[in-house]
Protein backbone atom coordinates (compact mmCIF):
# COMPACT_ATOMS: atom_id res chain seq x y z
CA UNK A 1 0.00 0.00 0.00
CA UNK A 2 2.61 2.55 1.03
CA UNK A 3 5.74 3.03 -0.91
CA UNK A 4 8.63 3.87 1.35
CA UNK A 5 10.19 5.62 -1.60
CA UNK A 6 7.68 8.37 -0.98
CA UNK A 7 9.49 9.40 2.12
CA UNK A 8 11.72 11.78 0.28
CA UNK A 9 10.42 15.22 1.02
CA UNK A 10 8.42 16.44 -1.93
CA UNK A 11 8.73 13.16 -3.71
CA UNK A 12 6.46 11.95 -6.43
CA UNK A 13 2.78 11.59 -5.71
CA UNK A 14 2.32 8.00 -4.60
CA UNK A 15 -1.42 8.25 -4.35
CA UNK A 16 -3.11 10.45 -6.80
CA UNK A 17 -4.83 12.81 -4.44
CA UNK A 18 -6.43 15.93 -5.84
CA UNK A 19 -5.11 19.28 -4.72
CA UNK A 20 -6.51 20.51 -1.44
CA UNK A 21 -10.23 20.78 -1.76
CA UNK A 22 -10.37 21.93 1.80
CA UNK A 23 -9.13 25.42 2.73
CA UNK A 24 -5.34 25.66 2.83
CA UNK A 25 -3.91 25.33 6.29
CA UNK A 26 -0.53 26.42 7.49
CA UNK A 27 1.88 23.56 7.96
CA UNK A 28 2.23 24.34 11.66
CA UNK A 29 -1.44 23.64 12.19
CA UNK A 30 -1.26 20.41 10.23
CA UNK A 31 1.74 19.25 12.25
CA UNK A 32 -0.21 19.84 15.40
CA UNK A 33 -3.16 17.89 14.08
CA UNK A 34 -0.94 15.02 12.96
CA UNK A 35 0.62 14.89 16.41
CA UNK A 36 -2.79 14.83 17.99
CA UNK A 37 -3.80 11.93 15.79
CA UNK A 38 -0.60 10.08 16.66
CA UNK A 39 -1.11 10.81 20.32
CA UNK A 40 -4.66 9.56 20.36
CA UNK A 41 -3.92 6.36 18.45
CA UNK A 42 -2.01 4.56 21.16
CA UNK A 43 -0.07 2.54 18.59
CA UNK A 44 2.33 3.44 15.80
CA UNK A 45 0.61 4.61 12.62
CA UNK A 46 1.74 4.61 9.04
CA UNK A 47 1.43 7.70 6.88
CA UNK A 48 -1.56 6.22 5.08
CA UNK A 49 -3.39 5.56 8.33
CA UNK A 50 -2.66 9.08 9.52
CA UNK A 51 -3.99 10.52 6.29
CA UNK A 52 -7.18 8.51 6.61
CA UNK A 53 -7.70 9.54 10.21
CA UNK A 54 -7.13 13.18 9.36
CA UNK A 55 -9.67 12.98 6.60
CA UNK A 56 -12.09 11.56 9.10
CA UNK A 57 -11.65 14.54 11.40
CA UNK A 58 -12.84 16.81 8.64
CA UNK A 59 -9.50 18.33 7.70
CA UNK A 60 -10.31 17.50 4.09
CA UNK A 61 -8.44 15.38 1.59
CA UNK A 62 -4.71 15.78 2.14
CA UNK A 63 -2.08 14.79 -0.33
CA UNK A 64 -0.29 11.67 0.80
CA UNK A 65 3.06 13.32 0.26
CA UNK A 66 1.99 16.16 2.54
CA UNK A 67 1.36 13.75 5.38
CA UNK A 68 4.64 11.99 4.72
CA UNK A 69 6.53 15.28 4.73
CA UNK A 70 4.98 16.31 8.00
CA UNK A 71 5.74 12.98 9.63
CA UNK A 72 9.35 13.09 8.46
CA UNK A 73 9.71 16.59 9.81
CA UNK A 74 8.26 15.60 13.15
CA UNK A 75 10.70 12.73 13.29
CA UNK A 76 13.62 15.04 12.54
CA UNK A 77 12.52 17.41 15.28
CA UNK A 78 12.29 14.61 17.74
CA UNK A 79 8.56 14.87 18.18
CA UNK A 80 7.81 11.47 16.70
CA UNK A 81 9.50 8.09 16.78
CA UNK A 82 9.42 5.82 13.81
CA UNK A 83 9.91 2.13 13.25
CA UNK A 84 9.90 -0.03 10.18
CA UNK A 85 6.71 -1.89 9.41
CA UNK A 86 7.24 -3.91 6.27
CA UNK A 87 8.41 -1.45 3.67
CA UNK A 88 6.92 1.60 5.35
CA UNK A 89 7.50 3.52 8.54
CA UNK A 90 5.09 3.64 11.42
CA UNK A 91 5.17 6.77 13.56
CA UNK A 92 4.46 7.34 17.21
CA UNK A 93 4.17 10.62 19.12
CA UNK A 94 6.92 11.27 21.61
CA UNK A 95 5.96 14.41 23.48
CA UNK A 96 3.19 14.63 26.00
CA UNK A 97 -0.17 16.00 24.85
CA UNK A 98 -0.27 18.78 27.36
CA UNK A 99 3.27 19.83 26.63
CA UNK A 100 2.44 20.12 22.98
CA UNK A 101 -0.54 22.28 23.74
CA UNK A 102 1.63 24.50 25.87
CA UNK A 103 4.30 24.76 23.24
CA UNK A 104 1.82 25.53 20.51
CA UNK A 105 0.02 28.08 22.62
CA UNK A 106 3.23 29.84 23.50
CA UNK A 107 4.23 29.93 19.82
CA UNK A 108 0.91 31.35 18.76
CA UNK A 109 0.80 33.98 21.44
CA UNK A 110 4.43 35.01 21.17
CA UNK A 111 3.88 35.55 17.47
CA UNK A 112 1.18 38.08 18.19
CA UNK A 113 2.27 41.67 18.38
CA UNK A 114 -0.67 42.77 20.36
CA UNK A 115 -0.69 40.05 22.91
CA UNK A 116 -2.85 42.20 25.13
CA UNK A 117 -5.56 42.01 22.51
CA UNK A 118 -5.65 38.31 22.63
CA UNK A 119 -5.61 37.53 26.27
CA UNK A 120 -6.40 39.19 29.52
CA UNK A 121 -3.44 38.19 31.59
CA UNK A 122 -3.90 37.78 35.31
CA UNK A 123 -0.79 39.79 36.14
CA UNK A 124 1.45 41.89 33.98
CA UNK A 125 5.08 42.80 34.42
CA UNK A 126 6.59 44.41 37.45
CA UNK A 127 8.95 47.33 37.26
CA UNK A 128 11.96 47.83 39.49
CA UNK A 129 10.03 49.31 42.41
CA UNK A 130 6.92 47.15 42.14
CA UNK A 131 8.42 44.19 43.92
CA UNK A 132 9.30 46.27 46.98
CA UNK A 133 5.89 47.88 47.00
CA UNK A 134 4.14 44.52 46.79
CA UNK A 135 6.14 43.07 49.62
CA UNK A 136 5.45 46.11 51.72
CA UNK A 137 1.71 45.95 51.05
CA UNK A 138 1.28 42.26 51.58
CA UNK A 139 4.17 41.59 53.92
CA UNK A 140 3.78 38.44 55.99
CA UNK A 141 1.08 37.01 53.68
CA UNK A 142 3.74 36.34 51.13
CA UNK A 143 5.86 34.48 53.62
CA UNK A 144 5.65 31.36 51.48
CA UNK A 145 7.90 33.27 49.13
CA UNK A 146 7.66 33.81 45.46
CA UNK A 147 9.21 30.41 44.77
CA UNK A 148 11.57 32.19 42.45
CA UNK A 149 13.30 29.62 40.39
CA UNK A 150 16.86 30.11 39.36
CA UNK A 151 15.95 29.05 35.90
CA UNK A 152 18.35 30.30 33.28
CA UNK A 153 15.62 30.05 30.73
CA UNK A 154 15.42 33.82 30.46
CA UNK A 155 11.98 33.62 28.94
CA UNK A 156 13.54 32.84 25.61
CA UNK A 157 10.83 30.50 24.42
Amino acid sequence: MDSSADHAAGGHRGRHQPRHAAPRRRSGELSGLVLEVLGQAGRPLTAGEVAELLEGTGVGPLAYTTVVTILSRLHVHGLADRSRVGRAYAYRAVADEAQLAARRMRRVLDAEDDRAAVLARFVGGLNARDEQVLRRLLGPDLASGSQARDDPRDGAE
Binding site: G125, N127, L134, S146, Q147, D151, D154, G155
Partner: peptide, 19 residues
Amino acid sequence: GKAALLTDGYHKKPFATLA
Protein backbone atom coordinates in the same frame (compact mmCIF):
# COMPACT_ATOMS: atom_id res chain seq x y z
CA GLY B 1 0.58 39.88 44.56
CA LYS B 2 1.71 36.29 44.86
CA ALA B 3 1.06 35.58 41.18
CA ALA B 4 2.93 38.72 40.17
CA LEU B 5 5.98 37.95 42.25
CA LEU B 6 5.94 34.37 41.05
CA THR B 7 5.79 35.34 37.40
CA ASP B 8 8.35 38.06 37.84
CA GLY B 9 10.65 35.74 39.75
CA TYR B 10 10.43 33.15 37.02
CA HIS B 11 11.26 35.52 34.22
CA LYS B 12 13.66 37.63 36.26
CA LYS B 13 15.58 40.18 34.21
CA PRO B 14 13.69 40.02 30.91
CA PHE B 15 10.52 41.20 32.59
CA ALA B 16 12.21 44.16 34.21
CA THR B 17 13.75 45.04 30.88
CA LEU B 18 10.37 44.79 29.22
CA ALA B 19 8.77 47.02 31.82
